[in-house]
Write a protein that binds this DNA or RNA. Structure first.
Lengths: 134, 134
DNA sequence: GCTTAATCCTACATAATCTATAGGGTTAAG
DNA sequence: CTTAACCCTATAGATTATGTAGGATTAAGC
C-alpha cells in the first residue's frame, strides 16, 4: 500500500507538473488545490528536493518546481524516495537489497516469485510518469 | 513489502505442501525445518485455518494440513488473508475497497495507474501457487 | 481413566513505523 | 524592515507489526 506521504506527494507533483516552466510554486498555493497539512507537505517536498526531483527558491516569491519535465519523472522514482523498496522482499530489491538471514536465496522459491512481482510492478511504475498523472 | 507473517506462512505452507496427503503435520515438526517462534506460527496457521486454507486435527497425532492441493492455492489468497489488499490504494482494491475521502475517483489520475499496478501484481500472484513454491 | 501432545482462543506486551506537529532559522523581494 | 517563502531537526501521537502468555479443549494410546 502507498503511504500517505506518497499519495500527498503525487497530488502536489501533479500541480507542480501542470505549472511547469512558470517559475516556482509555493506550498501555500499547492495546499489550496489539495487541502492537507502545510507542515507535513513541507517535509515531503523537502525530501523530494534532497533527492533531485524538485528544485526550490527561498524567500518571497519563492517555491518549488520540477527539475525535469514531467515525462522524465517516473512514479517508481517517487515511490522509492518516499516509501522505499518496490520489491516485496529486500532480498530481491534492486535499490534496497539486503541479504536474507534465515532463508537460502538459491533454494528459496519465494524470492524467485517475488522477483516476478517486482518486475511486474516496475514495468508499470518505471514507464508511467507524472505526465500520465495530469 | 511482505510482512513477516506472510513470509513465515509461506515457509510453513511449503512444508505442508510437500507433506500433502500424508496426514496432519504438527507445528513442532514445521518449526524444526523453519526455526521461528512456535506461538507466532500458531496464530498464523490459525488464521489460515479460519480462512479455509488449512484444516486441522486436535489432540495427539494432530496437526495442520492443506484443504486443497498446492496448485489450487494461489499466493494472492494467502497474502490477502495475512497482509490485506494487493492493490496500492484501497480505492482500487478488488477485495478491500474503500472510497477515497479527499480525491475524486473519476478525475484522479493516480487511481488509474495504481489499478494497472494492481493488475500487474495480480497477474503473477493469482497464477502462481504453492506448487511453484516447492 | 490418565498422560501426553496437540490445536484453540484471546488478551496483552513490545517494538517499529507512519503521520503529523512544533518551533525556530535562513533567505530574498520590495 | 517587513513579509513570505523555504530549511532543518526533534519529537509527539497514533497505528500497525511482531511476538508472548496462559490456559482451555481435544483426542490417541496405554
Amino acid at each position: 500500500m502507498l503511504s500517505k506521504k506518497s499519495q500527498y506527494a503525487f497530488r502536489a507533483l501533479t500541480t507542480l507538473a501542470r505549472h511547469q516552466g512558470k517559475g516556482p510554486l509555493p506550498i501555500s498555493k499547492i495546499v489550496k488545490e489539495h487541502p492537507m497539512s502545510v507542515k507535513f507537505l513541507e517535509t515531503i517536498l523537502l525530501e523530494l528536493r534532497k533527492n533531485d526531483i524538485l528544485g526550490s527558491r527561498k524567500g518571497k516569491g519563492g517555491g518549488y518546481f520540477l527539475l525535469r519535465p514531467p515525462e522524465k519523472i517516473s512514479l517508481a522514482q517517487i515511490i522509492r524516495i518516499l516509501d522505499g523498496p518496490i520489491a516485496p522482499l529486500k532480498c530481491v530489491s534492486l535499490n534496497f537489497y539486503e541479504r536474507c538471514e534465515d532463508c537460502n536465496e538459491v533454494s528459496c522459491g519465494l524470492n524467485k516469485l517475488m522477483a516476478e512481482v517486482r518486475d511486474a510492478k516496475l514495468k508499470v511504475l518505471v514507464n508511467r510518469t507524472l505526465r500520465e498523472l495530469i
